[in-house]
């Protein structure tokens, strides 16, 4: 049994709004093992970022449990001990708005060093240089640049350096490269992979890009409307997807080469009404769009079942009678 770094058990996060309660995350359970990359993929608005924000402690979950290395961390950010905040870090999608535009790189990277008392004042600058070198930005060229003077890829590298400043063990990557072009993305991803093996990092990687996940994730989890639809080791996931939503996703991946086209399942056109997280339909939440739905699907809500080793699916087709 591998070491489990993070355990998420029946996590729920509801947002009360004037027009009803948004069930952004509604009973999600998964584990993340040491040194792996768990890819979290799903429809926009399905609750990926909300899950991430609960994990880093930005707000407390409505219910459910989060365990980090066996320790319960379900409480809110204010009460999280510093030692824990040091261990779990996040890289946001949009580096432009997550980096203070009025500070230069040296100041930005000093903040976590100060807050977490990583090094004394005298050693701060040399630690900042070390961090920049780690993300392959020559310190002499970058120390005193402001985010405005950086390209999108470079900003994201600074954001990664900032996340790594506290020597975390778990890093949540919330769409770290979706705003970047493919050659810059390739650079950042190879950097992330190198750092992962050098520093023994564990990644929870949120993205819409299944082709990217095929190449970096050890397991892939699919989210739909606040719940997990499927979770499986990467090879199994791409070779034998089971959930109808997963198949729809895979069949819609835009590709450039005929070799890739050959790997996609037969085209499943997305149609039907997309339900709202305020008013989740009864039964399986995917049934309104599901091309394979049966009679029971509009009434019974399936639960996540282990179909074969490590391959979990939430669909009535794979569930025995209750």
């Amino acid at each position: 049994m591998k070491d489990v770094v993070l355990e998420v058990v029946d996590l729920k996060k509801y947002f009360p709004t004037k027009r009803g309660t948004v069930k952004a995350v509604d009973g999600v359970s998964f584990t993340v093992q040491a040194g792996e990359t768990l890819g979290l993929v799903g429809e926009s608005g399905s609750g990926k970022t909300t899950t991430a924000h609960c994990i880093i402690g930005l707000y407390p979950p409505t219910s459910g449990e989060l365990r980090f290395k066996g320790q319960d961390i379900s409480r809110g950010f204010e009460r999280r001990p510093l030692s824990l905040r040091r261990e779990i870090r996040i890289v946001f999608q949009d580096p432009g708005s997550s980096l203070n535009p009025k500070r230069h790189v040296a100041q930005i990277l000093s903040v976590p060093l100060k807050v977490h008392r990583i090094v004394g004042r005298g050693e701060r600058l040399s630690k900042v240089r070390e961090l920049l070198e780690m993300v392959e930005l020559p310190p002499d060229d970058y120390l005193y640049k402001t985010p405005r003077a950086l390209g999108g890829g470079e900003m994201q590298m600074v954001a990664i350096a900032r996340a790594l400043a506290t020597s975390p063990s778990l890093v949540v990557l919330d769409e770290p490269t979706s705003a970047l072009d493919v050659s810059v993305q390739a650079k950042i991803i190879s950097l992330l992979l190198r750092l992962q093996s050098e520093l023994g990092l564990t990644y929870l990687f949120i993205t819409h890009d299944l082709s990217l996940m095929r190449n970096v994730a050890s397991r892939v989890a699919i989210m739909y409307l606040g719940k997990l639809a499927e979770i499986a080791p990467t090879l199994k996931f791409f070779r034998s997807p089971l959930h109808p939503y997963t198949k729809m996703l895979l069949s819609s991946v835009p590709v450039v080469s005929p070799e890739e086209r050959a790997l996609k399942p037969e085209k499943v056109v997305s149609r039907g009404e997309i339900p709202s997280p305020v008013n989740v339909p009864p039964g399986c939440s995917f049934h309104l769009r599901c091309p394979e739905k049966g009679e029971a699907c509009s009434q019974l809500d399936p639960t996540l079942q282990e179909i074969e080793e490590d391959h979990f699916v939430r669909c009535l087709q794979f569930q025995g009678p209750p």
């Binding site: 493919v182 299944l210 095929r214 080469s257 890739e260």
Partner: peptide
């Protein structure tokens, strides 16, 4: 640019 695209065929990530 074209070499940098991650492929569904899973050939790994290029260096850009």
């Amino acid at each position: 640019l074209l070499k940098s695209i991650p492929k569904l065929t899973g050939e790994g990530i290029s260096q850009g």
